[in-house]
Design a protein around this nucleic acid. Structure first.
Lengths: 345, 345
DNA sequence: ATCCTGATTGGAAACGTTTCCTATCAGAAC
DNA sequence: GTTCTGATAGGAAACGTTTCCAATCAGGAT
């Protein structure tokens, strides 16, 4: 409780507080013997620097906030440990902050940055088209992770770095894959209509694949989420799939734009008495750990989560250290072929 | 970037900084008109208090750390949003901190508390028998959440509050349920042998249920985790179940001590060509969201997560506010009967 | 008119650092 | 011996608050 201060250590070592400060911060301009002695004493007496004082003096904190929209999303949750790990490397604090479902003009991230004296922010998920007001005023370094594909969205000229995959392309690829496997009537469980998240990019990929293959873009096959259920949840995947099945529309495969929703879709299919992939082939998106343990294991687009997190933190770090070149990293995802797709050839 | 200070506001309002401070903190001993005027100006100019300075002066921060062992566990992950929500009520920061797999004498949580100037800590998961050194020296309020059943473990006389369920009892109940359904050869996928987590309590419950029912405690039916695979993961559930199946031991039901592992076990069962619940009945433990979306939906013990989180935070809050009565809350869990158990009657 | 009281306000110290500016000192160069 | 130099150390201000203490003042009691 007592809490030793730099002053105590100074007294014990019979040196000035400036010297102790220099020793602890590994500053130069101090005799290495003195430093050793001070450090030794500090350790022995269990001295711990007071971050508040340090931050006050240095006019900043050491905290990075992870601004998360939909923090109950298993895809994001799978990232937390990685963020923790990467941020730890630089001795950053990790503040988890959830953003409201609806982010509009009224939401100003900068207020939070100021209030918490953040050193940086990482936005995880959220809108592709953040209103100018939301991001435009942020005065601390920040990066967008898994939110924007600079390819598809006009974000390259915003003063911001990002790490993502090319959602449109990957969705395109996975639907093409279904077509190669002989499927012709392919449904999609898409996101909310026009909600400006990656979901809409994935839907675009689907549309392009269908179009380019000369198949029919049947509106009956394109299903948007149920507005009355929390978005992008298992429950919503279940409900939407159920409606699709009950509509009597004919199809042999379905692309569910997230693994989480695919989990719900699986159940709806089973509950209807159908079998995967015998009656319906399913592909997901994200590559959450669970996808390998569903039965049958889910064919899905695996995002390189580890790399994305690492890069996000590195990009942020670079910005904090003064590098002001804005980068947009776009990683390739990988189609993981599992047992949920049947070949019709 | 500038960052207005209390001093600026004072100058603008033509009052002293003490007055501004009083206005902002809603202190008494200030004319209400003055207060209104100051607050109005502060707001207008976008003043944000500097927490570092405040914390320095007040000799504390406003941060609560969630000390999490196994932060990739979906059961815990499901709790994060709730913690966020509850802590927000008191304006606490939410610091997510993962603890190492192996927690022994060498690990001192107090160091972290000191370093980060924590206001409180919540331990999520971890050992039932934390070595004295780990918890014994902690000088800030803390509570254990979902780690200890005060009923089973001699923790009542430690200076600590806790929130949990009675893991032994709940496990007992779920195994009794299997027995009522006519099962006689009931296997268990337990935890690591003697690892002092809730897993061992759940195993005890299993043993008692089997014993009391006059059934045989066949060592062949009691399976511990594979040491070569990360503990308590889907992968480990899969591997352990696979071994059990391949051993040729006869059984009609299996109690998997966590839903996460049950997910892996499901897959192992399917992969072996068996069906749930036709060939093998399965029950899990925890009640993670996913359990309802497995196929067939998993019969499991649902922990009252929402309530547990709320109580943890409230208990912590009470301690912070000076209440030093240590409480041990033990909630009832609920058996959620789903489709993974077949009646043999 | 004087004194006292309570309400309101201002002044200043303190929290634990970092860092600029000086001071000291040993040895090298003269 | 004197002067300069570089290395090392100490002193003190400053960061933005909170809070104790003293000061002011209006109005009621004397």
């Amino acid at each position: 409780m007592a809490g030793l201060t730099i002053k105590d250590i100074a007294r014990i070592c019979n040196v000035s507080i400036s010297t102790v400060s220099r020793a602890i911060n590994n500053d130069r301009g101090i005799n290495s013997q003195t430093r050793e002695r001070v450090l030794q004493v500090a350790k022995q007496f269990g001295y711990v620097p007071n971050n508040s004082a340090r931050n006050l003096k240095m006019a900043e904190s050491n905290t990075i906030a992870l601004m998360c929209k939909g923090m109950d999303n298993p895809f994001f949750q799978g990232m937390y440990p990685y963020f923790q790990q990467e941020l730890e490397k630089y001795n950053y604090e990790f503040l988890l902050h959830s953003m409201p479902e609806e982010i509009d003009e009224g939401y100003e991230a900068e207020e939070i940055a100021k209030e918490k004296r953040l050193k940086g922010m990482i936005f995880l998920g959220g809108r592709l088209d953040y209103p100018e007001a939301v991001l435009g005023n942020i005065q601390v370094p920040f990066v967008l992770c898994s939110v924007a594909s600079a390819v598809s969205v006009n974000m390259t000229n915003m003063n911001v770095s990002s790490v993502s995959i090319d959602d449109e392309k990957e969705a395109y690829k996975v639907v093409r894959y279904l077509i190669r496997m002989g499927h012709r009537r392919i449904a999609i469980i898409a996101g909310k209509k026009h909600d400006h998240t990656v979901a809409s990019l994935r839907e675009s990929g689907y549309r392009r694949a269908i179009n380019e293959s000369g198949l029919e873009l049947d509106p009956e096959l394109i299903r948007y989420l149920d507005d009355s259920i929390p978005e992008y949840t298992e429950a919503n995947g279940y409900a939407t799939m159920k409606k699709l099945l009950e509509s009597g529309t004919d199809f042999t495969a379905v692309f569910v734009i997230s693994d989480r929703m695919a989990t719900g879709a699986y159940k709806a299919i089973y509950d209807s008495g159908r079998k995967i992939p015998r009656d319906i082939s399913v592909v997901g998106f994200d590559g959450i750990e669970l996808s390998r343990y569903l039965y049958p294991s889910l064919t899905t687009v695996v995002q390189p989560v580890r790399k994305m997190v690492k890069s996000s933190v590195e990009l942020l770090r670079a910005q904090i250290m003064g590098d002001d070149t804005k980068k947009h990293l776009i990683y390739d995802a990988e189609l993981s072929e599992a047992d949920s797709v049947r070949s019709l050839l």
